[in-house]
């Protein structure tokens, strides 16, 4: 029983990790909590859904299309709403409020375009179930974990080993200095938003394929939980986000099982508040002086 909860919790957690990484990437570079990230995740799931239902490209290509479109959408959001604020040197809180506004726009646009009711999504990696000891393992879960791990490694590789990743880290350290060294800061930020959006789109498609359902409100709670995960691990730190995601997924799974289904959402928020109170920089975070 416990092992089953651990396994189910890990599946959930790795997807939270994938969403949480998006928060961390953007926060790392901009010191901004991208509140629209949850809505972006719902956006990605809907694009994949509409492509797979209305064309015969199949689920794989649907997700690829969704990744590209979602990435472009987040870049566009940055371009028209956030970049002007940076140019004006607005207060940090203005950018946060802007992303809250964007989140509302995206979520409600999804409701108007796709209707607000829940819709069916095809099952992903459907090759049956098998039993390992007491644990029932679904092929879907194995597929989700594999894809998520590969993507997380890929993201880490991009940030740590590529030229653009180096630029991202430079902007993170000091945007002004990076710009003086010839780095196009706006391009780096656009790229970061693209990565965040793309990972959210993958997470959205995977989760929808797991539960076989999408709805426009799915991003709000999922986004908040992933944000809790990012904060727990230390926002801005990739491996912290992964760790946080797994903890939140496990905690939620155990809460639903041992306390009752009504409490599952509360757990993530309690983790969030507790971390913010006792260790606002997260488990892996270094002390940063934030002046907003």
């Amino acid at each position: 029983m416990i092992l089953q909860q651990v396994f189910d919790g890990l599946t959930l957690g790795i997807v939270y990790a994938l969403i949480a990484v998006g928060y961390s990437l953007v926060f790392g570079v901009l010191r901004l909590v991208n509140f629209a990230h949850g809505a972006t995740y719902a956006f990605g799931a809907h694009i994949a859904m509409v492509v797979v239902v209305s064309t015969n490209f199949g689920l794989f290509w649907a997700i690829i299309i969704s990744v590209i479109m979602t990435g472009l959408m987040t870049m566009f959001m940055d371009r028209i709403a956030l970049r002007p604020l940076r140019a004006k040197k607005s207060k940090g809180i203005s950018a946060l409020i802007t992303t809250i506004g964007c989140s509302y726009i995206i979520q409600n646009a999804l409701m108007i375009v796709f209707g607000s009711r829940s819709k069916w999504f095809p099952k992903i990696f459907d090759y049956g179930n098998f039993q390992i000891g007491n644990v029932l393992v679904k092929s879907t879960q194995v597929g989700i974990i594999t894809v998520s791990v590969v993507l997380l490694l890929l993201l880490t590789f991009i940030v740590q080993k590529t030229k653009i990743g180096l630029a991202m880290r430079a902007v993170q350290q000091n945007a002004k200095a990076a710009s003086l060294m010839g780095i196009d800061v706006n391009r780096v930020i656009s790229f970061t938003f693209f990565l965040g959006g793309a990972s959210a789109a993958v997470a959205g498609s995977l989760i929808s394929g797991y539960y076989q359902i999408v709805n426009p409100q799915m991003g709000f709670i999922a986004g908040l939980k992933a944000f809790s995960a990012a904060v727990l691990g230390g926002i801005g730190i990739l491996h912290g986000a992964v760790f946080g995601g797994l903890v939140v997924g496990l905690a939620e799974s155990f809460a639903a099982f041992y306390i009752g289904g009504g409490y599952r959402d509360a757990v993530a928020f309690i983790i969030l508040i507790v971390v913010l109170i006792f260790r606002p920089n997260g488990l892996f975070g270094k002390k940063v002086i934030e002046k907003v």
């Binding site: 909590v33 908040l224 009504g262 509360a266 309690i270 508040i273 913010l276 606002p280």
Partner: peptide, 28 residues
């Protein structure tokens, strides 16, 4: 009291978490 040392975005998100917790308590 505990969140007053938080600033900016952190505080904002903490208030959001607070709103959701109130809802969860009322529900459960």
């Amino acid at each position: 009291a505990p969140t007053s040392r938080l600033s900016g975005s952190y505080l904002t998100i903490a208030t959001l978490g607070f709103g959701e917790i109130v809802k969860m308590i009322a529900l459960n």
